[in-house]
Amino acid sequence: MKKLSLPRILLVAFLIVGAIVTLLPVLVVFRTSFQYPRDIISGSLLFTPTFYNYIDTFTSYRFGRLLINSLVAASGTTVIVLAVASLAGFSLGKFHWANWAVSLILASLLLIQMLPPVVFAGPFYLITRQLGIYNTPLALIMAYLVLQLPLSVLILRQFAMAVPNEILEAAHIDGASNQMIFSSISLPLMVPGIATAGLLSFVFSWNDFMFAVTLTSTTKSMTIPVGIANFSQDFQVLYGNISVAAAFAAIPGFLMVIFAQRYVTRGLTIGAIKG
């Protein structure tokens, strides 16, 4: 596969253009983060670089604390979602279910996703206050569970379905129990799906604003998006601070992508060896 044909050059060119288009706006934010607020609104392309926004952001907010809160909420959600959704995906994808049952479950999952988030915000506020978990990461995990489960189940069902039946049948004949087939054969084969679903759960929980602002109130458990939104104020939008915060907010997700990628690609190879 080493020939340098014309289509190949076009392909690479296409990817490079795609990468540039994706990166340019990010560079704009990066640039903004080094500008004095007065230069941001000046409209001039030239400016004196400064750390003003960085200093201001980290002195006015306990951003470290928000980062930890976000991490706890997002990773907690991801772990639970993956455990619950991979089981459900396996059950739906690999066992025989009556048509109506599958349709019912899938349809309700989709319907949950379709509901405007505001529908859940009010009731969840009351539930978390009642349970005494209001303003804790647990409240967020509870809410994100509901929001992230549907998509993860849908994705993992697809990946469970893609696991070749022959391997499972062979294991069954060897006397393996269903739970064993799930955990030792199916799960490893579903790794790309798990990595994808996990990444999505993490990122969406990480970026959620609506529930974070409803279910937490103080820096004790407030998450990054609320911290960022606090810079978008009544009489002014602090572009510089938002840019700084955004740059830091993207780091954990970025690490997750790099980490998860190895698994997104590795999935079937492991399966093939085992099979």
Binding site: G18, V26, T32, G43, F209, S232, G253
Partner: peptide, 28 residues
């Protein structure tokens, strides 16, 4: 390439709003 193409999703929507405001704004 993969990392780059996945990147935009990682940013909080509010940050994406500000990012594009910095690009589109008529005055600055």
């Amino acid at each position: 390439f993969r990392t780059i193409f996945i990147f935009p999703m990682l940013l909080p929507p509010i940050a994406i709003g500000v990012m594009w405001l910095m690009i589109y704004d008529f005055n600055y």
